[in-house]
Design a protein around this nucleic acid. Structure first.
Length: 423
DNA sequence: TCTGGGGTCCTAGGACCC
DNA sequence: TCTGGGGTCCTAGGACCC
């Protein structure tokens, strides 16, 4: 009767979301592409069985997809985000303490349950989520988050009932022996390579290493991971997410962009989007950074520029962010390159309220007016749809920099005009 | 023609202070 | 000719995650 972590992970999440609204695709291969229809970021089991790899560039596989009846979707984050919220809300019914770890993963902390109760709860979770949302999930259970992730992996791989409880030293060691270090949560490719060079190949090898050795080779974060493999909880549940420290809006372009005017339009649009995110979180930014890069996969001259600038005063107003961002862009822009991607990063974030004011920033009536303007813009764009009201600087004509999204499904759950129709 | 976007954490090294 | 020890803060870069 101790504390156990449950790791609930949606199976092939994006592909599963698409299938909920296209049941004719059940049992058929489905893939979802990254933004700009770039590479494969989600695959149904059938697509995996056909050998479609994660991260594969989509254009190399067009023929293969057509020949094998693979259904291809552009990513639809409005849909996935909303489906995710529904799943997470259901999971919240099963535990007081939960951590939404990513769009398709959630940790639950269950205290004082017997093994049989844990398994019963896990099965109940699967059944409920499936029935209420149509999304299949697997559940891994263990005494630490790291082991729960491994248990979840097993639950997925072994088929069976989609639930796996990892408990007991011997059972755990048997599993770790069959696991490469790179498959442990927190050990990436680089570290796995380095470990391998030291003769440490499996998770069990790593678990048996001396603490000082681990610290030396993998820093304190690595040591925490190793302790977790030994069933010593070191990575706590993050019940309330820590406040964001930075915020990014970046995109690859639909076509390569050479002229500065188009880049300015794109950066202008990204600043506006970043500002919306900032205000939604109730934060202000004290610095802004802009970056610009060519396509590193293409031959020819490459360039990547990036610069950061402190703002006169922390702000959440698009109007304050816009000028500095464009100045940075002009600063880092070099003519003669075909650019592939640009982005805006807001840094040094802090809560908008309860903040020490500076003499430099607008205050009194001026501040009230500026805040009101942003509220009105956000409101209109929420109600009427994103991009209804924008700064003219982001362009009025055809936007050649817009990303490609040729096969996006409707926003079934978030847009009145795109609701699914029942006949 | 065509290869995503959005985050966090840790460390090393330099600047600076007394 | 001789030239310490200890501390903090900041930044860039690398690694990790989904």
């Amino acid at each position: 009767m101790r504390d156990f972590y449950l790791m609930v992970d949606c199976n092939n999440f994006y592909a599963s979301c698409e299938r909920v609204f296209a049941p004719r695709l059940d049992g058929r291969p489905v893939v979802v592409l990254s933004n700009n229809d770039g590479c494969v970021i989600a695959r149904s089991n059938e697509a995996k069985a056909l050998g479609v790899a994660m991260g594969e560039p989509a254009y190399k596989r067009e023929d293969f997809f057509a020949k094998n009846g693979v259904h291809v979707f552009s990513s639809n984050y409005a849909l996935y985000g909303d489906m995710s919220a529904r799943v997470m809300q259901i999971l919240g019914r099963f535990a007081d303490e939960t951590e939404v770890y990513s769009i398709d993963e959630c940790f639950l902390l269950l205290r004082g349950l017997s093994t049989s109760s844990l398994l019963r709860t896990a099965r109940e979770i699967r059944r409920t989520v499936r029935q209420w949302t149509g999304i299949p999930v697997c559940v891994g259970i263990a005494r630490t988050k790291t082991l729960a992730k491994i248990a979840n992996r097993l639950a997925k791989k072994n088929g069976g009932d989609g639930v796996c409880l990892l408990e007991g030293e011997e059972d755990i060691d048997a599993v770790l022996q069959g696991l490469e270090t790179g498959d442990i949560w927190g050990i990436g490719r680089k570290n796995a390579q380095r470990l391998s060079a030291c003769g440490v190949h499996t998770a069990l090898d790593l678990k048996g290493q001396d603490d000082d050795w681990v610290r030396r080779h993998l820093t304190v974060t690595g040591l925490r991971t190793v302790l977790e493999l030994r069933q010593i909880p070191c990575i706590a549940l993050e019940d309330t997410p820590p406040p964001a420290r930075s915020l990014v809006c970046s995109r690859s372009f639909g076509t390569r962009i050479q002229n500065l005017a188009s880049l300015e339009e794109a950066v202008s649009a990204y600043v506006q989007r970043a500002g919306e995110k900032l205000r939604r979180k109730g934060l202000v930014a004290a610095a802004v950074q802009v970056f610009l890069e060519t396509n590193r996969f293409q031959p020819g001259p490459q360039y990547a520029g990036s610069r950061c600038r402190a703002l006169p005063a922390p702000t959440a107003s698009t109007l304050d962010l816009h000028g500095p961002a464009l100045e940075i862009l002009r600063d880092i822009h070099r003519p003669g390159y075909k650019y592939q991607k640009a982005g805006v990063i807001l840094l040094d974030l802090s809560p908008a309220s309860g903040r020490q004011l500076s003499f430099l920033e607008p205050h009194g009536e001026e501040k009230t007016r500026r805040d009101a303007l942003m509220r009105v813009m956000d409101r209109i764009n929420t109600v009427q749809g994103r991009g209804t009201l924008t700064l003219a600087a982001s362009g009025l004509g055809k936007k050649e920099w817009h990303m490609r999204q040729e096969r996006r499904s409707p926003c079934y759950t978030t847009s009145w005009t795109e609701l699914p129709v029942a006949r």
